[in-house]
């Protein structure tokens, strides 16, 4: 996936092949990557492989609500993972839910990364007033509790997948900015940048052709972790009643919806989406973990 493709650009420092073989040294990480690939495929292909379109109110029937796993509903097919309170097939719900969770997670991570990295690089490269202005903005952002900020942004924008993405981007860009600035500050004083400056290359070229590639490793690590964080944040927001609309539930909303039924023994509404969420986040984190080990030169023997 994207995490294996991007390092190709940084072959200046680490040849791609060496990166792959180092990554593959951990069987767990390879397994996690495989699991993540499968999850991503399920999410992408959901409309073609799910037994039901769980967002189409016309095919839902509350008379099929809360059926046990394995029961056959009014639609004539087996609900392998049961149904929720609206008669929504849980298997389909989870497939579509994965789609939303991944869309929110990956989408917000990419946008936040782009925004944060750009600002962080500018801060590091320009220094002085620009740097301190941007970094105060970062402080401002980081000094504000993510959940509260997201809560207020969503209360203002209203529910919706796009709005959740916007909220998460606003909340998370600062992490990237700080990370990039940190490593860019180190890189800035390296000889190759000095050399580039001596050649009087335009700032833009130095920034994006020379500085950025060398700040990528920490960025990739942070980015991977932030995807997982974004997915969890979205789940929590949905639990608090904001987040995505109830008719198009993400994994977090499915869990929140089903939890009320947990005490009364209808575990499947909350349990299976919980497992799906867990597996997704764990897989992403495991991949990110190995990436960090591989990309951190200080850990190399």
């Amino acid at each position: 996936m994207s995490s294996t493709a991007t390092p190709a650009k940084i072959k200046v420092e680490t040849p791609f092949r060496r990166f792959v073989s180092e990554f593959a040294a951990s069987k767990i990480a390879v397994g996690a990557l495989l699991v993540f690939t499968i999850i991503a495929l399920i999410a992408i292909l959901a409309p073609w492989i799910a037994p039901q379109n769980p967002y189409d109110l016309a095919v839902l029937d509350i008379m099929d609500g809360r059926l046990e796993p394995g029961a056959v509903g009014g639609g004539g097919y087996v609900h392998w993972l049961g149904t929720d309170d609206q008669g929504r097939d849980m298997l389909s719900g989870i497939m579509y839910g994965l789609r939303i969770s991944l869309l929110v997670g990956v989408g917000s991570a990419i946008i936040a990364c782009a925004v944060g990295a750009a600002l962080g690089m500018i801060a590091a490269y320009a220094g002085g007033k620009t740097d301190s202005a941007i970094m105060r903005l970062v402080d401002l952002q980081l000094s504000f509790p993510a959940i509260l900020a997201a809560l207020m942004i969503l209360a203002f924008l209203g529910k919706g997948i796009l709005n959740v993405v916007i909220a998460i981007v606003i909340v998370e860009w600062a992490y990237y900015a700080r990370t990039v600035r940190g490593s860019a500050l180190v890189e800035r004083n390296r000889e190759y940048i000095e050399a580039a400056r001596c050649l009087a290359l335009p700032s833009r070229i130095i920034l994006f052709s020379h500085l950025l590639p060398n700040c990528l490793p920490p960025l990739i690590v942070v980015g991977t972790m932030q995807i997982a964080r974004a997915i969890a944040l979205e789940a929590t927001l949905s639990f608090l009643g904001l987040g995505v609309p109830i008719t198009e539930p993400s994994l977090g909303l499915l869990i929140a919806n089903g939890f009320e039924y947990m005490l009364s023994g209808k575990y499947w509404i909350s349990f299976y989406p919980g497992i799906a969420l867990l597996v997704t986040i764990v897989a992403i984190n495991l991949v990110g973990d190995q990436l960090r080990d591989v990309l951190n030169p200080r850990l190399k023997k």
Partner: peptide
């Protein structure tokens, strides 16, 4: 280490 990843991954409310 596997357990610590779970700790990161589990949503607090759950």
């Amino acid at each position: 280490m596997a357990g610590s990843i779970l700790g990161f991954s589990l949503p607090t409310f759950w």
